[in-house]
Each structure stands twice: as C-alpha cells, then as structure tokens.
Amino acid sequence: MSETEKTILELLPGSGILPDSSADLTVSQDLWQAGMNSLASVRLLVLVEEHFNIEIPDKLLVRSTLASVQALAVAVDDVLQGQR
C-alpha cells in the first residue's frame, strides 16, 4: 500500500463520505458500491485536494478516478509528480 493510499484511507472514517462501515475498506474496493454518492464524491475530492494541497485537473474528474482509493491515489500522485 502506498503512502497516498494510506493517507486517503485515513481521511475517510468520520468524513461522512461513506457509511460507517468504511473502516473495513480496502484500497481496491469500489467506492460507489461501498455507498458513495455523487455529493459524497465532491466532498471526497475537496477533502483530498485540501489535504494534499493540490488541484485535480478537470480531465481527471471522472467517475473512474473515484472508483477506488487506489485509483484516486494514482491521480493524486500524478498531480504531485507534475508539481515537482
């Protein structure tokens, strides 16, 4: 598990993005099937952008980017790599 994945997993509990059962979430688990809805996906994006101090580009704002913690972490890492 990457540090980015671990950080995103740590941000989820108590955020209201997923039901309380998110404590058992894995990095590859589908977030939509875990109970995330469109409003929660926006909250997740804002939470991640604020935590990592980044802006995820519009071209990455698609359902597949938010499919799992793993997919979101790839997008975050790509943005962070571009800032270096």
Results as ranks from 00 to 15, higher is better:
V48P: 04
L44S: 07
V69S: 01
A34G: 10
I56A: 05
W32N: 02
L11M: 13
L11V: 09
L31S: 04
L60H: 14
V48R: 02
K6Y: 00
L72F: 03
V76A: 03
A40H: 10
L39W: 05
L31A: 06
K59N: 10
E10I: 01
A67M: 12
Q29H: 10
Q81M: 13
S21K: 15
L60Q: 12
V46H: 06
I17C: 09
A40I: 04
L11G: 10
P13T: 11
H51F: 14
Q70N: 12
A71E: 11
Q33N: 13
S15K: 05
S41H: 05
L25P: 11
S15N: 05
I56H: 02
D77I: 00
D20H: 12
I8N: 01
I8L: 03
P13K: 13
I17E: 05
A75Y: 00
L47V: 09
V76C: 08
L47R: 11
V76H: 03
D24L: 14
P19A: 11
S28N: 14
D24F: 11
P57V: 04
L44G: 08
Q81C: 06
V27W: 00
P57L: 05
L39E: 11
L45F: 10
A34M: 06
S68F: 01
V79C: 03
S64L: 10
M1R: 05
G14M: 09
Q81T: 14
V46L: 15
S2I: 00
V79G: 01
Q70S: 15
L11K: 10
L45V: 13
S15W: 04
P19S: 11
T4N: 00
H51L: 06
K6A: 14
I17T: 08
L47C: 08
L9N: 07
V42Q: 11
A75I: 01
E3M: 03
L66H: 11
D30S: 15
G35M: 07
L12G: 04
G16N: 10
D77Y: 01
L12I: 15
S64N: 13
Q70G: 05
P57M: 03
A34T: 05
S68V: 04
V79D: 01
S22P: 02
G16E: 06
S38H: 08
D58P: 00
A75D: 02
A23W: 12
S41P: 08
K59R: 13
P13N: 12
R84V: 12
M36R: 08
A23K: 14
L45A: 14
L18F: 12
W32H: 10
A73H: 00
L47K: 09
L31V: 05
L12Y: 09
P13A: 11
L11Q: 07
V74H: 06
W32C: 04
S22Q: 14
A73C: 02
A71C: 07
I8C: 03
P57A: 04
T4P: 02
A23T: 15
E5V: 03
N37C: 09
A23I: 12
N37P: 06
S21H: 14
L18W: 12
D58C: 00
S2P: 08
D24W: 04
Q70A: 14
D78I: 03
